[in-house]
């Protein structure tokens, strides 16, 4: 039995704006197991990044605030930890890489400096040991000539190299969980292929769990063990990757899968989901997808569908199509 590493339980993260409250993460629950790659998929503004930031407790406050729920990491509720304990967890147990590798690196410090600093701080290594470990890490992320890179500045490296360095920094303290927020979106496809390969490699070597946030279903298919689909702040479907791609339940998931042109499978016309993502301010208590859904029923407009499994234990979704009760009360 694989152990649970992280468990989100009814997480609620809200942002207060002058126009109203944005429920960026609205009652989200899911679990990341040890050694597993979990992908969170969704379009921009669906709350996938905010979920990750809530886990790291890096939500900018104000305007943002975690207003409810629990996040268990190895059995401890992170939301109840002190700032100091949380910062220790951020450094040692969970680390994160971002979409834009340039802005996450300090332009005036050498790469070596930036890798060894957390090593000296969190692992209490001396300068020499830290350098040795840093060079090991640079080699681990597949960069040749690590000594040379150690003394370079971020602007001397290409985007792909910088993302490798970010991964090296993230791995420096042997984290149990690596959060990757759209790590390849800013990169070219051939470089993306390299980075994805690297992440798969690392997961195998170090048995790190990965929470991969992406909008690209192609990346999901290649990387994920388990997939969580989010829409307008809510989890609308979750399943193991094969199950999700073979038998998607929610109309939104189905639409996403059909909307992307696939190479060597030319279609006359692309399927497209009409309309657009709803304005996230003060959403009503209904299915947020109802006005774009081709199967929309009366109940969808007034009541939120429950999120639960329909027949298969490991496949959950939130859609009235799979419910018995459909009467508007």
């Amino acid at each position: 039995m694989v152990k649970d590493l992280v468990e989100f339980r009814n997480l609620e993260t809200h942002f207060k704006t002058t126009a109203g409250t944005v429920k960026a993460v609205d009652n989200v629950s899911f679990t990341i197991r040890e050694g597993e790659t979990l992908c969170v998929v969704g379009e921009s503004g669906c709350g996938k990044s905010v979920t990750a930031m809530s886990l790291m407790q890096l939500i900018e406050s104000p305007p943002g605030k975690i207003v409810g729920g629990e996040i268990f990491f190895e059995g401890r509720d992170l939301l109840k930890l002190s700032k100091k304990d949380m910062s220790r967890i951020r450094g040692n147990e969970i680390s994160m890489i971002f979409q834009e590798p340039m802005s996450s690196l300090n332009p005036v410090l050498t790469i070596g400096n930036q890798i060894s600093e957390p090593l000296m701080l969190h692992m209490l290594l001396d300068r020499k040991a830290a350098k040795k470990r840093a060079i090991e890490l640079i080699t681990l992320v597949g960069i040749s000539r690590p000594e040379k890179i150690f003394d370079s500045y971020p602007h001397e490296l290409s985007g792909g190299m910088r993302q490798r360095i970010m991964i090296a920094i993230a791995l420096s303290c042997d984290p149990k969980l690596l959060i990757a927020d759209e790590p390849t979106t800013a990169l070219d496809v051939t470089i993306q292929a390299q980075i994805l390969d690297l992440m798969r490699d690392i997961k195998q070597k170090l048995n790190t769990s990965i929470m991969l946030i992406t909008h690209d279903l192609g990346v999901v298919a290649e990387m994920a063990d388990y997939v969580v689909v989010m829409y307008a702040g809510k989890v609308i479907e979750e399943a193991p990757v094969l199950e999700l791609f073979q038998d998607p339940q929610h109309p939104y998931t189905k639409g996403l899968l059909k909307a992307k042109p696939i190479i060597n499978q030319k279609q006359e016309r692309l399927y497209s989901i009409p309309g657009q993502v709803p304005n996230p301010i003060d959403l009503e208590d209904n299915c947020h997808f109802h006005d774009r859904c081709e199967f929309c029923m009366d109940i969808c407009k007034v009541k939120q569908p429950p999120f639960r499994s329909h027949g298969k234990d490991n496949h959950k979704s939130a859609c009235w199509l799979y419910e018995e009760e459909r009467e508007v009360l």
Binding site: P274, G275, P278, N279, I281, D282
Partner: peptide, 16 residues
């Protein structure tokens, strides 16, 4: 076709 028809704004923007 259906997807290039005028988009119905969602309720929230209509209010403003």
């Amino acid at each position: 076709s259906a997807d290039v028809m005028p988009i119905t704004e969602n309720k929230n923007t209509k209010k403003a």
